[in-house]
Amino acid sequence: MYMFVSPNLLWLWLPTLFSYLVIPLLDAIIGEDQSNPPEEAVPALEEDRFYRYVTYALVPVLWASFLVSVIFVGTHELPWHGVLAVILAAGGTLGYGLNLGHEMGHKKTSLERWLAKITLALGFYGHFFVEHNRGHHRDVATPVDPASSRMGESIYRFVFREMPGAFFRAWDLEAERLERCGKSVWSLENEIIQPALISLVLYGTLIAFLGVQMIPVLLLIAFWGAFQLTQANYIEHYGLLRKLQANGRYERCQPHHSWNSNHLFSNWALFHLQRHSDHHAHPTRRYQSLRDFPDLPRLPSGYFGMYAIAYVPAIWFKVMDKRLLDAVDRDPSRINFEPAKRDRLMRRYRLGDAQETTTGAGVAA
């Protein structure tokens, strides 16, 4: 029988403790790196295959880590807190997988795009391949984007808008594409169905070998993995708004429509995802070439530190709302408000009768 504080079980918590305690601490100690690669070196840097091989090699590592975690739970008698520790660690691994799928899914080579689908399939989140590239990047920092958080919106409210909204937008986008090609939405060319079939085979095989008691474990791991993406989406565009122009289209996405972070260690861990401003302005640019720009909205910590802050909405709003107002020069027409809280926030921060913020639907640029 395991004791509640068994030293063997404490090891299972190390991955989660590393993410939420060690990485923010290292970010604080090592600090930020605002340097950029020289532009004349970028073409060679983009073609340097070393950086691609790093991403390729990580795919089997992530698969192995996921399988070992699930098989470990399925073949060992663990108390509930031991199972929880593995769920959080395995879900955290899926979060890295979603980030890897994000990096490769933006690329044009067939190999990288398939590796992205294979990686996303680990967490049953293959629709992200479609939703992010063709949905989020089109609608980012607008009220119509379920993956852009709003000022005054907590991460918990955001989850219930972002997760289902992302899937439905992905399905609609893929259905439209296949219809234009004269093909059925249920075709094997559906880029949502492709990774979903990999997921079904993977999860079905694990359940067949380890038993139906693994179903809730697998569902919780998949949810926690998806939540890693959701919390990243939450902090990346919080409250930032592209203006709706007279022609009914949103202005082009610019670097100042994303929150940026140059914290060194977490950027190493996330393939420079935190240089999100350049990523959205130039989405096909490879991670090793992403740049910092002056006068960007800046996060006070790397993503891992911001995740912990987001879990306590009162602290999040205290930290981020003032930063948001400074980033947009207190112009409410540049703020993506939570509609139900707009008037209250306008009064609280004394924003006056400035130009009305658009909260309706529009056509993304």
Rank of each mutant, 00 (worst) to 15 (best):
L241D: 02
R113M: 01
Y56S: 06
L120Q: 12
I118H: 05
V144K: 06
H102N: 13
L219G: 09
G362E: 11
L244P: 01
A41F: 08
P313M: 05
A196E: 10
K108D: 07
H76G: 09
V319N: 00
W224D: 09
L345S: 13
E103M: 07
T119L: 07
T357V: 05
N99H: 01
R177W: 11
G239E: 05
V319P: 03
P43D: 04
V61I: 04
F293A: 07
W224Q: 15
F50W: 12
T16E: 03
N267A: 12
R298F: 10
G152K: 11
S199G: 07
H272L: 14
W316Y: 15
L84I: 15
A89L: 04
S266I: 04
R169T: 14
R275S: 11
E112V: 05
A175K: 15
M306Y: 03
I71Y: 09
L14F: 12
H102L: 14
D145L: 02
Y203K: 12
I207W: 01
A89H: 04
P313V: 08
L21M: 11
A232F: 00
I207H: 03
R138C: 03
E189N: 14
N336L: 10
G362T: 09
K341R: 15
F317Y: 14
Y349L: 07
F129L: 12
Y287T: 15
A170P: 02
I118W: 08
T284H: 09
G225S: 12
F227A: 10
L62Y: 12
V130Y: 06
R161H: 09
T230V: 15
Y51D: 10
Q274L: 11
A90L: 00
I192H: 00
A246D: 13
H279Q: 14
G123R: 10
E131S: 09
V312R: 00
D48K: 11
F129V: 05
L229A: 14
L229D: 06
V312N: 01
C253N: 08
D172Y: 03
A141W: 01
D48L: 08
F271E: 06
